[in-house]
Amino acid sequence: MNESFSMNRFWLLVRRQWSENKKVYLLQWIVISLFVMLLQFFNRIDEPYIFYLLLFCLGGCAVVTTLFSRWTDKGRSSLYLLLPATVSEKFLCALFYGVLLFIPVFCLNYFFFRYIFTYLLIMLFPNNLVSFTGMVSGGIHEVINTPLSNFLVFFLMFLFIQSIFIIIFIRFRRYQALICLITIMAILIIYNYGMGTFVRHLVKDFAGSIRAPGLFLTFFSSDFWYQEFKSFNGEHFSFTRLIWILNDLAWFIVFCILYLAAGYKLREREI
């Protein structure tokens, strides 16, 4: 038997996780679906994607809380830590539910509730103007025409938040959500400020004029919005494709390291 990883033990862990938490997962699925529907029906917001992104990241975090949030419950946590499986198997089980299964389920759920379920609801009303095929093909068209960079922003933001979330939930016993929120906010503010300063110098060099740091950075994308020093007209700055790819690749490597660090923290976890 392979000591560090056994497929049999891994599937036993997956089965155990499902048996113990299927009701929680069902509840989380219902809550996420309700939010997708609410956003669909009250979509008067100009940029609804930020809410979908938030829902995506929070949902991914909620799925892994079933594994790492019970350290104050000594009975449950000792049962989990002393379960005959290696730390790698236990951690991969968390990633199986939190990443591998959650992402496709969320995407299918999003598509179903945003397009198909919405159509079925519209059908209830007389004189509806939208056809089923129109609704679904519109959805497919929207997905196909979404630039890859948008998907990357979603995916990298998800990895960023979830990896930090897991580390904090394994490391701390109490106030984990609060510590997580503060940490993520601090990293985003520092990153935004750093990138703002960096872009200001770039713009100064290129344009020969001094500009103030931008207020809004689209994380993990090639876009950076900045403002001119005296006017409030937003201007758009784009990195070259190569810089953007290297930036995203670097972040992806950082997130992989964060996940590995989370696995290491689980190895060190004491009761």
């Binding site: 038997m1 009975g75 005959p84 499986a85």
Partner: peptide, 16 residues
Amino acid sequence: AVFLENLFFVPEEVSL
């Protein structure tokens, strides 16, 4: 895993 297969601990605080 091999070590844990041969060990069982029943804590004072049981939570199932």
